[in-house]
Design a binder for these strands. Structure first.
Lengths: 341, 341
DNA sequence: ATGAAAGCGCTAACAT
DNA sequence: ATGTTAGCGCTTTCAT
């Protein structure tokens, strides 16, 4: 029972057009009249009907752009699935979702993709932002022009976005620490294969893990951390190096990608039953490793929700003028073991 | 680009009314004409616009009824939150969600609630079904009358529902087994506090757990299983009984409710640091126990999604004529430990 | 059996 | 500054 624009018009003794203008802060309406209309709407608890609104605005297409660093990274398949689900759901609302994929984390390339979207007209943007001052500035510039922005999966400091949608990386690292403690009985010499140092998330994971181990499991220790980019070949080599140079390592953690190459190295060395292995996310390689019992656990961050929610959040802003309660929408951290994959 | 009813009408050289009738299998349209219209729609990949459809049907209210055994069970708070979110989201589509809560699992009471909904006019039903032949028959009768039904949280055999939305209980039991193995280092004498034997889900959990322990952790054994209903007082007594009669027990599992009473007994006996304790779901008591380190892990089943998805599934059927791929929509099983609650 | 037209709640172009 | 009116895509009532 929220009433309609028609009712308000009748009570205020003005036309529906005027009510529409007043309630949407459109120009060309007397201040006092606008105030009166707003008061009436307020008192009757008026909420605009989104469905009708969408239908009426249907002639003009609303474009939500997506820039995503997904190429060559299977993790993002689920994120893309979530985006696609949202796209279908909002299609009838007159919303078009344009997805632009890129490989790696090159700021220049990302800027070009953003630019190409802006040129063709853009009403909102969801992006996995590369950590770069120019990207940050460009995003803030767009936000200044009234284009709402959501960052997802990757957070970027000092951007005035609607929200960051993704996991709490530090917490996911702590969770890893907790699982290492459980699985190893509190005794572990840990080798860590991380990705690019560019990705702040990866660093936070290592920190979080280190924190829990030192607080709760004094007999667990990180022996060595090596960077492998997100490249399987490099990961293979780094894992080889790690395991041959540090024979004392009994626990191996893959902070992001590189699971395929890493596991290959482990198996070639015949260590798959002696090492306790931990990963993040549910890439095909991780699923296989979990099922085979080679990987003890993998910590997931709800990739599908990250994609879906990013679009949904922008949709709510565009059509409903509804902003999320917090500008950090954290997706749940889920531990997966052999039995609940 | 799915085209509109108007375009189809133009191509078929009929009026929009006839197209509408043909495409929705409404009576009063010549068979050949209907065929031709359907063919044209098919060829242009026509998909009706849900938003416009909802607006047009807006004058008639569509009612989704919910019967939920939630009273006195804090687990269902999140389920209700999911239902409420869906209710708000679909309100503008002209959909009213009527929630009827009941306490416990009395079939007679549930039948009365269903009846009261039917009397006032009901277009779809979401229900946590009590395991009872009369309930089953009544649901099937309604389904026969064209009212789509979704069962959530609790599955009920031989009901021709659209879908069951909830967890895989057996699998959740297996997951418990896996966590017991990890946390105890593969050595455990387990006491189990379960709820009513009426709830088949609880039995399946125990079976799943037993299966994993016997397969993967031969030195883990379930010593004793006691029933506590969902009553905290009974749970307190049963836990007391279990721990005093079986002093060898070093691991305690709460299969469903009763965590408050159970933990009270444990603490009074001063065993909170000697026992490994496992629970299901994220009730306030479980969260507190996890944070304090008394509970080692709790296995969750996405209660919010269960509520939200139940309504969404019915919405899709009612407005979109879209049925889910499978009649079993399993929500994810998530392991929570101290660091990812 | 089919067509014509009104209307769902809102927006926007066009009058005044 | 305000009113009027024509849609958005679909359903539904009323004619024919």
């Amino acid at each position: 029972m929220t009433g309609s624009i028609k009712e308000i018009a009748k009570i205020a003794k003005v036309s529906r057009g005027t009510v529409d203008r007043a309630l949407n802060d459109r120009p060309g309406v007397n201040y006092e009249v606008a105030q009166r209309i707003r008061k009436i709407a307020d008192e009757m608890g008026y909420k605009p009907n989104v469905v009708a609104k969408a239908l009426a605005t249907h002639r003009r297409v609303t474009v939500i752009g997506v820039v995503i660093c997904s190429e060559g990274n299977l993790f993002f398949d689920d994120v893309l699935a979530g985006i696609e689900a949202a796209r279908q759901e909002y299609f009838d609302f007159g919303i078009t979702v344009k997805v632009l994929k890129m490989k790696g984390y090159n700021p220049q390339q990302q800027l070009e993709l953003i630019e190409s979207l802006r040129k063709k007209g853009l009403d909102a943007l969801a992006i996995t932002p590369v950590s770069d001052p120019k990207v940050r500035d460009t995003l803030n510039e767009m936000i200044g022009e009234g284009i709402p922005v959501v960052c997802f999966n990757l957070d970027l400091a000092e951007v005035n976005y609607i929200a960051y949608v993704g996991c709490d990386y530090y917490k996911s690292g702590e969770t890893l620490g907790g699982m290492i403690g459980y699985v190893t009985g509190g005794k572990a010499l840990v080798g860590v294969i991380t990705c690019l140092s560019v990705l702040e998330g990866a660093q936070k994971r290592v920190e979080g893990c280190r924190h829990v181990l030192s607080e709760a499991y004094p007999e667990c220790r990180i022996v060595k951390v090596l960077e492998a980019g997100d490249d399987e070949e490099v990961s293979y080599q780094m894992t080889m190096k790690m395991l041959s140079e540090h024979k004392e390592i009994d626990t191996l953690c893959f902070i992001a990608g590189g699971v395929v190459g890493g596991l290959q190295a482990v198996c070639e060395l015949g260590l798959e039953n002696r090492l306790k292995i931990f990963t993040f996310d549910m890439t095909p390689a991780a699923i296989e490793g979990i099922k085979k019992g080679i990987i003890q656990s993998t910590i997931c961050q709800q990739p599908y929700e990250q994609g879906y929610l990013s679009i949904k959040t922008l949709f709510e802003v565009l059509l409903n003028d509804h902003y999320p309660d917090s500008d950090h929408i954290y997706t749940e951290l889920n531990i997966k073991i052999k039995y609940n994959v």
